[in-house]
Design a protein around this nucleic acid. Structure first.
Length: 924
DNA sequence: TGCGACACG
DNA sequence: GTGCCGTGTCGCA
């Protein structure tokens, strides 16, 4: 591994060797455009791409400190590659004007940075970069190429490294020849061969059809290059593959040619002329202001080196003066600029003094030193917080770092003072800390002054991709996070440094929460909810494995019987679980009419099969087989695997920072999708029991919560009235839409109205409804039209929510939870329509999530304050499951009713149904 | 490893 | 030339 550069600090260790950074301007700008929501500044000019580009630029300059920099751009449409292959980049959509108008802005930014922008007619940015990289390498430079396109990996050598974006814009990864090999098992030059074989959709490079990354790598590992593969086709394993290679020899060779970066572009600028001073001039601030980059103005102002002029620092707290802290950044920014004299320097992250705490005496001293805000990172011997052992805590303050080790005489109970209100603790993933400490008999509570950077940053953007601590630090603070193994002991000094960065992250995120008015949602709902979820995870749900095995035995018998019958119908044996083989049997052997196709073959989905049922008895058996097979594999065998044998319990994980709408999700096992709709599956709930003999399961579910929310949000009079009268909503909708009295509504009419109601909540389309009801599109469109004319408030709400999303780029729930919808401006019909439906659905689904989360927090609090033994086991989106002694049923029922129905006050009542039973099955 | 199928709200 | 919202898990190719 040659991580030496990434972790070195150029300032402390002057580097005499020149370092050239070459940035692929097109690739980074493109990537930024699609990764970021369509931000625009006060003049309505779109700035997301230039913003992302600038973020990226700042980050790489700050972390790499190059001595020479250039940015390359594609020049115009036609390139020499089109002469080879006229369909080159043919599938690529026309560059949207929202993007192309930002390229001049990118150049303005570069001008302010005094970084040259290069382009050469007929050549692409790649080729310019390749040429300069080669030249510079020959002159003894260290070279870094920065791009979003993994093609550039072909340029990597020991002297030329690549920095590629991973997710978003600023989440990057640095590649050396070793790390290219680690990732692809190929040398950098073989990246060209890889593309020759697998092609590239975005550039319309064909490759060999049917060969993807996996196959291509396998072939290259064996033969080395495209040419070698083609001259040894006979030695390739797999007949189909051989055939494909033979048929596509030309394509493979041409694809390789297209993918090869041309390193002899005629450029009239010398590498040595591309010097970069490393100093930001005030011009940069001017351009940032003009573009409306408020946060970047703050950011670079914060990094201004005031060491020569400390008196300009305005620090209201009169505290530390060596840094500019977040809260005063806006004040100092003005001073920094108006003084206008000097140059502004970006600085690498500070190193904070570190101390190991391993004895009682050292710990005593720590308590005397420590006060106020601390970042805390638990250090464990494994990734799974349900089973890992706690080995110590990395602790960071603004000015010091510590590691408290439980390796010697200290144990977890010794750090108890840390959990008191006296310390304001910031962590990443509070729930996991609560679970970890519970294993050591320590109970953390919401009143202990907490901040969680995971859940809070999720609120700022729930669709931001995987939220890891590393991602957050890099994305939000532009910190180069030291390499360390987070799921193991060791690296404690680095971890404690990161712990102190948690505090900066907190302030950064807090500012965002205030700006989006999300502080209430975070502090009053999500943060306390972490403790509720932790307790549910730790407690688990008791499962009777004997009963489950009994159900499994029954299923097995039925499955065997069905298998036999299906073979008989088919006249042959085959794998019923294989959609491919099944398709062949149904549509070729038995000649049933194929109604739909998927990319891989015939569709055998349930809705297709249901239509085929009248043609052949085999179809019903297959549907039955599929259903039972699912029950057996997922719910019997899958569940048995995760029952802890010592306790007969399953412990799900709730994910609080995952869904785009604000819902929770559950996994390992997923207890939010235990069967209920079909009786056979529902029987599985017989295996879910209360902990003790004389206890019961109590379930409480919101009735029609999403439609009630729709009534509230839209204010539609008819819908509101229906709920105020406590009518059966689907019957009432049917009566209204079909213009009949409620008692004249037939079951068909009710079923159709129900589908329309669902469709409305999902962001309706005539196609979707027609599929669901098995009617024509025209008929579905009629239904929708009728519905909207009878519920004009709903029609208007849907129109306005989409318009609002177009204007602001996001939608919100009743508690201000936000979801960005960048595709709302897409030129792609599909993506745009999807975003529009999402705009209609998310406020509804998300508000339902807000409401039940609030109810959970209130119920948890009420239970803790009461003397009830009852406890919450699960949340399933619109219902809560509890267990309690039989004697508590009445009181718990009253409590749950009260808290759930009054979680929020809407213009329609919230209604909750409660069911009690010996098992989960019987609580219906 | 991506996809189809299917479990839930 | 489209396809109703949000999830997780299994088996196949």
């Amino acid at each position: 591994m040659s991580q030496t550069h990434a972790n070195s600090e150029p300032h402390s260790e002057p580097n005499l060797r020149p370092k050239l950074m070459l940035i692929d301007g097109n690739s980074i700008t493109y990537r930024a455009f699609f990764a970021l929501p369509p931000l625009s500044n006060s003049q309505g000019q779109f700035t997301n791409a230039v913003y992302g580009f600038t973020q990226m630029l700042l980050k790489v300059l700050q972390t790499e400190h190059p001595t020479h920099v250039a940015v390359a751009f594609d020049a115009g449409k036609q390139t020499f590659r089109h002469r080879v292959y006229d369909e080159y980049k043919g599938t690529r959509q026309k560059t949207p004007s929202e993007l192309s108008e930002q390229f001049p802005l990118v150049r303005e930014v570069l001008e302010a940075f005094e970084i040259p922008a290069l382009e050469v007619p007929e050549y692409e940015a790649d080729d310019i970069i390749g040429t300069l990289a080669t030249n510079a390498e020959a002159k003894g430079y260290e070279v870094l190429v920065v791009s979003g396109d993994k093609d550039l990996l072909q340029l990597v050598t020991n002297q030329v490294n690549a920095i590629l974006t991973r997710k978003g814009v600023t989440d990057v990864e640095r590649y050396t020849p070793e790390s290219v090999f680690e990732r692809y098992e190929l040398t950098p030059r073989q990246i060209i061969d890889l593309k020759g074989l697998m092609g590239d959709n975005s550039d319309n490079i064909p490759g060999v059809p049917g060969v993807g990354e996996k196959t291509a790598i396998k072939l290259l590992k064996e033969f080395g290059s495209v040419e070698a593969v083609l001259s040894h086709i006979d030695d390739v394993s797999g007949n189909k593959l051989k055939e494909r290679l033979r048929e596509n020899e030309d394509k493979a060779l041409m694809s390789k040619q297209l993918a090869t970066i041309f390193c002899e572009v005629p450029i009239n600028v010398a590498v040595d002329a591309l010097t970069y001073s490393g100093q930001l001039t005030p011009k940069v601030l001017t351009v940032f202001r003009k573009l409306g980059f408020k946060s970047l103005v703050d950011k670079i102002s914060r990094e201004i080196d005031f060491s020569t002029n400390p008196s300009t620092v305005v620090d209201g707290k009169g505290g530390e003066t060596k840094g500019v802290d977040e809260d005063t950044a806006s004040a100092t920014q003005e001073t920094g600029v108006s003084s206008g004299d000097g140059t502004l320097t970006t600085k690498p992250a500070p190193q904070t003094p570190y101390q190991l705490i391993a004895t009682k005496m050292e710990l005593e001293q720590l308590w005397r030193q420590l006060r106020g805000e601390v970042g805390v990172i638990p250090v464990c011997d494994g990734a799974d917080y349900h089973t890992a052992n706690l080995e110590g805590f990395a602790i960071g303050t603004k000015s010091a770092c510590y590691y408290v080790s439980f390796d010697g005489e200290l144990e977890t109970t010794d750090v108890k003072p840390l959990w008191s209100k006296d310390f304001e603790k910031t962590v990443f993933d509070l729930k996991s800390l609560v679970v970890l400490l519970d294993a050591h008999g320590q109970t953390l509570t919401p009143d202990g002054h907490w901040f969680d950077v995971l859940v809070s940053s999720y609120l700022l953007n729930p669709s931001d991709g995987e939220l890891t601590l590393q991602n957050l630090l890099e994305r939000e603070l532009h910190r180069n996070v030291p390499q360390c193994n987070w799921d193991a002991v060791g690296d404690v000094e680095k971890k404690s440094q990161v712990a102190s960065w948690l505090l900066e992250l907190k302030h950064h995120i807090n500012a965002g929460l205030r700006e989006q008015e999300l502080d209430d949602l975070f502090y009053k709902v999500e943060l306390p909810l972490e403790f509720v979820l932790a307790n549910m995870e730790v407690l688990g749900f008791r499962v009777n494995s004997e009963r489950l095995k009994g159900i499994g035995g029954e299923l097995q018998k039925q499955l065997e019987h069905l298998t036999e019958q299906i073979y008989q119908h088919a006249g042959m044996e085959f794998n019923i679980n294989s959609p491919k083989q099944l398709g062949e049997v149904l549509f070729e052997k038995l000649g049933l009419p194929a109604m739909k196709k998927t990319k891989t073959g015939y569709s055998t989905s349930a809705d297709v099969l249901e239509k085929l049922a009248p043609y052949h008895d085999i179809v019903a058996d297959i549907l039955q087989f599929r259903q039972l097979g699912k029950l057996q594999s997922t719910y019997v065998e899958g569940l048995l695997k995760v029952i802890r044998p010592e306790t007969d319990r399953v412990h799900t994980r709730f994910h609080q920072a995952l869904t785009a709408t604000g819902r929770l999700s559950s996994s390992e096992p997923n207890l939010q999708n235990i069967p209920i709709r079909m009786e056979e599956g529902r029987k599985l709930r017989l295996a879910f029991e209360p902990t003790y003999q004389d206890w019961v399961i109590l379930s409480a579910d919101y009735s029609q919560v999403e439609l009630r929310i729709l009534a509230h949000l839209s204010g539609d009079e008819a819908l509101v009235q229906a709920f105020r009268n406590d009518e059966d909503i689907h019957t009432s909708t049917a009566a209204t839409v079909f213009g009949v009295a409620p008692e004249e509504v037939t079951s068909l009419m009710r079923r159709q109205a129900k589908a329309v109601n669902f469709g409305i909540v999902y962001g309706i389309s005539d196609y979707g409804l027609s599929q669901n009801l098995n009617i024509t599109r025209a008929e579905a469109a009629r239904f929708i039209e009728d519905y909207f004319s009878k519920f004009p408030g709903v029609a208007n709400y849907m129109k306005e929510i989409v318009e609002g999303a177009r204007k602001t780029g996001y939608v919100t729930t009743l508690l201000n939870r936000r979801r960005y919808l960048p595709d709302i401006h897409s030129r792609n019909f599909n993506l745009r329509s999807f975003a529009e439906r999402t705009a209609m659905n998310t406020p509804i689904q998300g508000t339902a999530a807000d409401i039940i989360k609030l109810a959970m927090v209130r119920i948890d609090q009420a239970l803790r304050e009461s003397d009830l033994q009852a406890r919450m086991l699960l949340q399933v989106h619109d219902e809560l499951i509890f267990e309690c002694p039989q004697t508590e049923v009445e009181e718990l029922e009253a409590l749950v009713h009260e808290k759930m129905e009054n979680a929020l006050t809407l213009s329609v009542p919230l209604k909750v149904d409660v069911h009690v039973g010996r098992t989960w099955y019987e609580a219906k």
